[in-house]
Structures are given as C-alpha cells and as structure tokens.
C-alpha cells in the first residue's frame, strides 16, 4: 500500500479507509476501465498498475466488479467503451483516451447516460464531460527537469535533448523545459526525436556524439530513451564527460540513482500509478458518499539518491 501513498493526499487515504468500513449495502457496481495496450514501458507500467489495483479492489469490495479493456488504437477503444455500456451496464467508466479527439464524443455519450466518467492523463477536447480528471503534470515534468539542469550546470555548458513522439504531451514537456532553462546560459546544441524508443535514442545519441565534442549533460526526457543514450555514451567511452536525466521513474533507472550512479544524478517522476489513483477514487465515489469529483493533478517529483527508495517498486515491470 505504501507506494501509492506518495501520489495521494492523506485525506484520500482516510477516505478510502472510511469507505472500507462503510461497505455494507447490497447494491453492486460495475466499473469499466479502458486504457491503451502495453506497447511502451510507461503504458506497460500503467497496465500493470491498473490490473494490480483492480485485483486488490475486487478483493476488498465484494460489491464492485471491473471490466478491463486495452486497445491498440482509438477506434478499438471506442468499441470497447460501447460494449461496456451496452452489454455490461457499467456504473462508472475510467478511461485513458487513446487520442483526445476521437474519444470525446463517445465518452460524452456515456456521461449523458448518467454514468460516472473518470478521465485519466489525457484530457478530452471538450471540457466538463468528466466527473473526475486525474492526470500527471506534463509542464511540471519539463519544468522540474529544466530547473535541475539550471541548478547543476554552469553558464555556457552544452546539453542535447531527446524528444519523444511528436505529440501535445511531448510539446508541453519540452516547452516547459525550455522555459525553465531560459536565461541560464545553458546551451542546447540540438533536439531530436528519439520516439520514447531505446533503439532510436541509441542511434540519435550516437550521432550527437560524433557531431559534438563537448556535451555536459543529456535530457533524455524518458527512461527508455535514457537506456539507449547510456549505451551510446558507453560505446563512445565518454561516460565521465556528461550526465543523463531520463524521466518517468523506470525501476532500473531509479535503482541506479538510488545506488548513486554519477551518470544518473536525478529523475523526474511521471507516475504510471495515476491509473490506480483514478480507479480507487472512482470506486470510492461509488461505494461511499465521499465527494471525489473534480481535477486531481499528480505533481511530478524530483527523484534524487536521497529519496529514490520510495520510488522503487520491486515487482513493477516498469
């Protein structure tokens, strides 16, 4: 239980505990959970946390059932949601929209039928549809990384940046990062897309290394990419020259931060466990009178060797 505590306020924990006591009524509820399939480390972690939470809640509450559907594209996700409403009669829907636009009106239709809607991570294009919005903080993610760079680099130091797949999410992060380092005198040599992919990041970093003789730090912006970047640096034998900052708190990377690896001084969290928060809050709203609607932004946190232990989840695949 303790690992989720960091993502939630103490009040929520209290509320959950209270609800556990208060579950005596006979009414049963069905909660539909629709999330993208595990094609990337982060989504893998998210899937893991979703399953884990569902299992735990089903054990805790006898009167809640879950329907979990993972989709490889937006159209499949829409079908999944329609099926949940039509055949399973769900009382609440927790959805991480594959893409904002295509999911907006189907989710709106669900909300109009009086079904509770919780939207996770990616907002819908129309505001006010969802009852509850739980998300990570993308600008905060970029800003926090940027601030770390400003603190730990000198005026005139050189960095390179690896970006993700070109999306709003990536733009928000990179813009906030750029804003944070503005005026610090840190010199961004180049930014290229590594597509949140280890192999692509390896290739891009290899080329950065052939091109630039002097690199002081790398913002890999994602831990999958950080792995590729580290391999490329190791190949070029320039480990002593620069440090790397990833993001999203992958187990392997957090472990190295915890152990004080000089190449990996810090990380910024972007918790895949936000899905747990969303599912728990939704369940709580159904079985108790606790008011859970609104927006719930889980701030990114800076992970350093000092606090890394709290972010290290032994059994998570991510």
């Amino acid at each position: 239980m303790n690992r989720r505590d960091i993502f939630k306020g103490a009040a929520l924990v209290a509320g959950l505990a209270g609800a556990t006591v208060a579950q005596a009524q006979d009414e049963t509820f069905t909660i539909g959970v629709a999330i993208p399939s595990a094609t990337h480390g982060f989504m893998g972690g998210l899937n893991f946390h979703a399953r884990d939470t569902i299992e735990r809640l089903e054990a805790t509450y006898d009167n809640i059932e879950f329907v979990l559907a993972t989709a490889g594209d937006a159209a499949k996700m829409v079908n999944d949601i329609e099926d949940m409403v039509a055949t399973r009669g769900i009382d609440a829907l927790v959805v991480l929209p594959f893409e904002s636009e295509p999911l907006t009106s189907p989710v709106q239709a669900v909300a109009e039928q009086g079904i509770w809607v919780t939207v996770v991570d990616r907002g819908l294009s129309v505001e006010g549809i969802e009852d509850l919005y739980v998300a990570g903080d993308n600008p905060g993610f970029g800003r926090m990384a940027g601030e770390y760079f400003v603190e730990n680099l000198e005026d005139g130091d050189n960095i390179v940046v690896l970006r993700g797949i070109p999306t709003t999410l990536d733009n928000e992060r990179v813009e906030a990062f750029s804003a944070a380092i503005e005026g610090s005198g840190i010199n961004v040599l180049d930014m290229q897309h590594g597509n949140w992919n280890r192999d692509d990041a390896f290739t891009v970093m290899q080329d950065f290394l052939s091109r630039f003789d002097d690199i002081d730090a790398v913002w890999a912006s994602d831990d999958d990419m950080a792995i590729g970047v580290l391999a490329a640096i190791e190949q070029a034998e320039r480990e002593d020259e620069m440090w790397v900052m990833g993001g999203a708190g992958m187990k392997e990377i957090i472990g190295r931060i915890r152990d004080g690896d000089p190449q990996l001084p810090a990380n910024v969290s972007y918790p895949p466990a936000q899905i747990s928060t969303a599912i728990e809050l939704t369940a709580l709203g159904l079985v108790s009178d606790t008011p859970v609607s609104g927006r719930f932004i889980i701030g990114s946190q800076l992970i350093t060797p000092e606090n890394a232990e709290q972010f290290y989840f032994e059994d998570s695949p991510f």
Partner: peptide
C-alpha cells in the same frame, strides 16, 4: 513479447 515482458521490458 509484450506478454512475456508483462507489458514492460525484458532485461
């Protein structure tokens, strides 16, 4: 492979 890796990464 996604299933073998439990959605994550096999190292």
């Amino acid at each position: 492979v996604t299933w073998l890796a439990d959605g994550g990464t096999l190292s």
